[in-house]
Amino acid sequence: MCLAIPARVVAIEIETDSATVTLGNVRKNICIALLDDVQIDDYVLLHVGYALHKISEEEAARTLAMFDEAELLEEFEGDAA
């Protein structure tokens, strides 16, 4: 039962189908081979090292606000996959 946390794409490496994403101060390299047309500043949901879905900025903001409201984001330790 994996919680899906939105992460923002900050860099893309086309040759390796990989991207760097951030959530707060944490950065992580992920595989984007399963998604089409990932762009910088897109929000993606991660699952064990893969970007699984692209979601809108609004949906990402809603989800992050929920975590924030429940004071959960401070518990985030960094491995968003």
């Binding site: 039962m1 994996c2 919680l3 899906a4 949901l45 699952h47 699984l52 879905h53 949906e59 989800t63 929920m66 975590f67 429940a70 959960l72």
Partner: peptide, 23 residues
């Protein structure tokens, strides 16, 4: 419990599938 308390039933169902997106 923390995330869904005080939500309406329909909103809670929608949130559950957004939060636990893998299944």
């Amino acid at each position: 419990n923390q995330l869904l308390q005080q939500k309406t039933p329909q909103l809670a169902i929608t949130l559950v599938s957004s939060l636990y997106r893998i299944c």
